[in-house]
Computed example of a mutant assay.
Amino acid sequence: MKTLWTPWRMEHVLGRAPASEGCLFEPPGDTLHDKRSLLLFRDNLSVVLLNRFPYANGHLLLAPRRHLNDLTEASSEESHRLMELLAVCCTILRRKLNPHGINIGLNLGRAAGAGIVDHFHFHLVPRWEGDHNFMTVCAEIRTIPQHIDHTFDLLLPEFIELATNPDPCIPR
């Protein structure tokens, strides 16, 4: 039998995770990357973070840098950049994690499932056939087979390249 060890999720599963100060999508400072806040990328319009409580390893969060609670409040420039980065993030996830598919979601409002209602954001969740088993169904616990620090280190070089490459498609 194999054991999947995901200890960083237990505080979240039990509802004891400390509330973070400020907005998750507005990490302090102006650095482009920050492992402590799981910030993989930031430019003048957008941020990409690893989800601290992921549904699967590589679960990314993409948000406008400006604090907006609804998609309809985004400027056309912000909307264009977010769509551009959705595609780039998919490319990076496929290149580095080789998922069989990717779920992309946006929940607007608490009734729609938004856990953070005042700063809209996209979820990008890599998926593999058979990636969730009886644990999710029976115990409402997901197992994540890769430590979040390792996932951050694996993805960061691609986002560093994105920050220095004027072409957002990162051809290769």
Score class of each variant (00 low, 15 high):
C23W: 07
L86V: 04
L106A: 03
D34F: 10
L82F: 04
D118N: 12
P7C: 10
L49V: 01
R36W: 07
V47P: 09
N133Q: 01
I92N: 12
L162W: 13
H150V: 06
M1I: 11
H67D: 00
M1R: 13
E26Q: 13
P157E: 10
G115A: 09
N69Y: 11
E129V: 04
D43E: 02
L86R: 14
K35A: 06
E11Q: 15
G101W: 13
P7E: 02
E21C: 02
P168I: 01
N69T: 12
D34S: 11
A111I: 10
I141E: 14
A19T: 08
D131T: 09
M10R: 14
V47Q: 05
I116L: 14
F152C: 05
P168K: 06
I116W: 06
E26P: 00
D30P: 03
G22Y: 08
R110S: 14
A19I: 09
R36A: 10
N51T: 06
L4D: 10
G15L: 12
W128L: 06
E26K: 15
T31S: 13
W128Q: 01
G101M: 07
L155K: 00
W128D: 01
H100T: 03
Y55P: 02
L155Q: 06
H67Y: 06
L156P: 06
P99N: 08
H12G: 02
K96R: 14
R16H: 15
F134K: 07
V117T: 13
P18H: 13
N107W: 05
E140P: 00
A56P: 01
E84P: 07
L71N: 08
L68N: 04
P64V: 07
C89G: 00
L39P: 01
G109C: 08
H123G: 04
E78D: 04
H33G: 10
T31A: 14
P54R: 05
D43M: 00
V117P: 00
T143A: 09
C138F: 14
L4T: 15
P126L: 07
E158G: 08
P157N: 10
T136A: 15
L50C: 00
P145D: 03
L124C: 04
I141Y: 09
D118W: 01
H123A: 02
Q146K: 13
E84A: 02
G105C: 05
L61C: 06
T136P: 00
N133I: 02
D34T: 03
C23P: 02
I144G: 06
R66M: 02
P18Q: 13
M83H: 07
H12M: 10
L14M: 12
H123R: 02
L24C: 03
V13R: 12
Q146Y: 11
T31P: 08
L124D: 03
V88G: 04
N103T: 01
R65M: 12
G29D: 07
G58E: 04
E161A: 10
R110T: 11
R65F: 03
T136C: 11
L4Y: 15
L61H: 05
E158H: 13
A63F: 09
P168V: 00
